[in-house]
Design a protein around this nucleic acid. Structure first.
Lengths: 385, 385
DNA sequence: CACTCGTGGAGAAACGTATCTCCGAGGGCT
DNA sequence: AGCCCTCGGAGATACGTTTCTCCACGAGTG
């Protein structure tokens, strides 16, 4: 083996530490060329099965593991996909803080792995330039703000970017988002049907697409049905502010008789606020909030939630991204037409193709006037089954 | 520029597509050698500040981004750390399913990023060999089972491995774990002091360290105080089985008057089972379960939980791993003595160094006989703030 | 004057793979 | 007999860094 290695003209160093076997060593041991080894292991080239299996066996015996770094350098593919959330905060890294992110990230990871890619979770910015140190085939960006410099930088360096959340003004390869307008309108209609006369909204101050589109849909609906808008805003990343805003909303003189909260904790906050003001849910106040958490199935009363189906989003985003990565290939650009079937594409010329995904309203007691008699805090009597 | 590139003797191809600027291009544009560029950008070598800044400026102007792949190939460092959970299931990828994993992974990610590394979440196994395709500087393994082939393989190929959970028979570089024995004994004592006469245990069937050590501690305690063990086991990854096991435990003729549940959902399951059997908590049944979820702060009654402090674990694991990675350096092995101060090392000769971290018992109403009168569902009176 | 020594920097060898090009040897066909 | 075609495989190059080695040169120094 040493002879073979030297014969191939390298490792002139005297101190032969134990090193991982390279493709050269396999070639020498199998008595073939490097090309043959590469072809045999990767199933390329034209080789008789006998040679192929022999090479494979030798490689196995030597414990040969191809160097991912070398392969990446050569092929330009790393099999790595970045996942980042840019909007919410910097360091504390709110990932998995909200159930939405956790679910979405999990689905994305699974989808990526299913296609042979791995996910790297990255912050929008960090002290060390981690981004520059990692070879990424593409990036998934969650909720990019307008003019996100990170996205622009990535796009400029040729890395495909697919965003979760319709991008405001970022040049992304593609995007996926829920149909927020339809979702909000659906909820408002649902609440109206349940008897709501004045529907309030608990929304955020940030400018991300979700907040913006949802709020706009609400305002538009108000204008259409002739209701005066009743809403409170707060910085969505501040949990304490949410409770305060919920309180404010219910303290208004024009107190709504139904509220939709855009963020996950709004449900409990609104419920608590309602209790403070002596409002019974759903009798005096109808409640819906957007959340992926199943704790709302067991609150008192259970709260109707809007699910954004983060699993579907995560899966779709990753698949779109990988399609783009593998489509870039040798051509000068992406064959977008093939990647995104028209049925899912928004009409338009220049802007990147987007996919709108439906949401799901999980109707529970909190938004039904005539609900199966959910008593407020039923004190179950000690007794038998 | 093209002239410069050709002058350096490459790119004989006629079709000059737009390519990312390489270090050569920067060198040519700045009128220095490649070495100088590399040194200037990496702050190595001996260069006058003037040269350094000039090179930096040229690189900036050209939008030069060093190739992570090439750097990795050359240096043998990728800046990537694998994170994997081997025990629980295969495909569904239970990550972030339990709050423990989510918290731990988040802390690990943060800690890694803080030191310039990124985390890659990987499954114990997948169809595509993702492991082989990624250059990993090290790996964090959560709860490795005995004789984990993955860990062995990693260790054999020289990748440092630090495990969360004391490894049974795996050759890891280091490990971190909670002091499960102390935790269980503490809980049992706590329950005894609260008046428990017969303490039951809800535990798992799997052989991971956590389950094993906890169960052994329980059995040992029973033997010591002379109580007959009362416990039920179930496959921890099956949520439905947990409810059934909880029911079994409370249906026994030798029904315990206090129960400790080893897994996150046990609290709600036990609570539900207690209701079914008409047992009041904590009056008829004391309850403690191990969980990171804060829903137990708002259950009826609030349930005492044991927190494994996953954030601390995640941070420690990653720091230990990076210490090992950066300690391996050029020497033949790790300078372990320097990395792990004696105060945290378990005594022993051969086995890998381990760190035991404390847990925290969050005492709530469910484990206190004389609790501050937590009324069942206090109906707050309608009124003002 | 010969010498060392520090400064600033250039050259070139890896790192380990994938792949493009090319080549020899048979074998069948005309 | 000459020619082409396919099979099986070898050689060499490029991917883009980092880093080891070495060199030129000017200034002190004995």
């Amino acid at each position: 083996m040493t002879a073979a290695a030297n014969q191939s003209g390298r490792r002139p160093t005297t101190s032969r530490r134990l090193e991982r076997a390279g493709i050269r060593d396999v070639a020498a041991a199998a008595g073939v060329s490097i090309t043959t080894v590469s072809d045999a292991l990767n199933g390329k080239g034209r080789l008789p099965d006998e040679t192929r299996s022999r090479v494979r066996e030798v490689a196995e015996r030597l414990g040969y593991r191809p160097s991912a770094a070398a392969r990446t350098l050569r092929t330009g593919r790393s099999g790595l996909i970045g996942l980042t959330v840019t909007t919410y905060g910097e360091e504390p890294f709110t990932f998995t803080e909200f159930a939405y992110f956790a679910e979405m990230a999990r689905a994305a990871t699974s989808a990526a792995l299913g296609r042979g890619y791995a996910l790297v979770v990255l912050p929008a910015s960090s002290r060390h330039d981690v981004w520059g140190n990692i070879a990424l085939d593409g990036t998934v960006v969650i909720d990019p703000p307008d003019q996100d410099p990170l996205v622009s930088e990535l796009y400029r360096s040729g890395v495909p970017v697919v965003s979760d959340g319709k991008p405001g003004n970022c040049p992304v390869t593609a995007w996926v988002d829920n149909d927020h307008e339809a979702a909000v309108l659906g909820i408002l209609d649902h609440l109206s049907e349940a008897g709501a006369r004045r529907i309030g909204l608990l929304t955020g101050t940030s400018t991300d697409t979700y907040t913006r589109l949802s709020t706009e849909a609400y305002l538009g609906w108000c204008a259409k049905v002739g209701q005066e808008p009743v809403y409170e805003t707060y910085p969505a990343h501040d949990p304490a502010a949410g409770a305060v805003a919920a309180d404010r909303l219910l303290a208004r003189p024009d107190r709504p008789d139904a509220v939709y909260g855009l963020f996950d904790p709004n449900g409990t906050d609104l419920l608590a606020a309602a209790r403070r003001y002596g409002l019974r849910v759903p009798d005096d106040l109808l409640l819906v909030c957007c959340s992926e958490s199943d704790v709302y199935a067991t609150t008192e009363p259970p709260i109707t939630t809007l699910s954004l189906k983060p699993r579907r989003i995560g899966t779709t985003v990753v698949n779109l991204l990988i399609d783009a990565i593998e489509g870039v290939d040798s051509g000068t650009g992406v064959d977008i037409a093939r990647l995104f079937p028209p049925r899912f594409r928004t009409a338009g010329t220049g802007p990147p193709p987007g996919t709108l995904m439906p949401t799901e309203l999980i109707v529970r007691a909190s938004s039904q006037r005539r609900s199966p008699r959910t008593t407020v805090s039923p004190p179950r009597l000690p007794g038998e089954v």
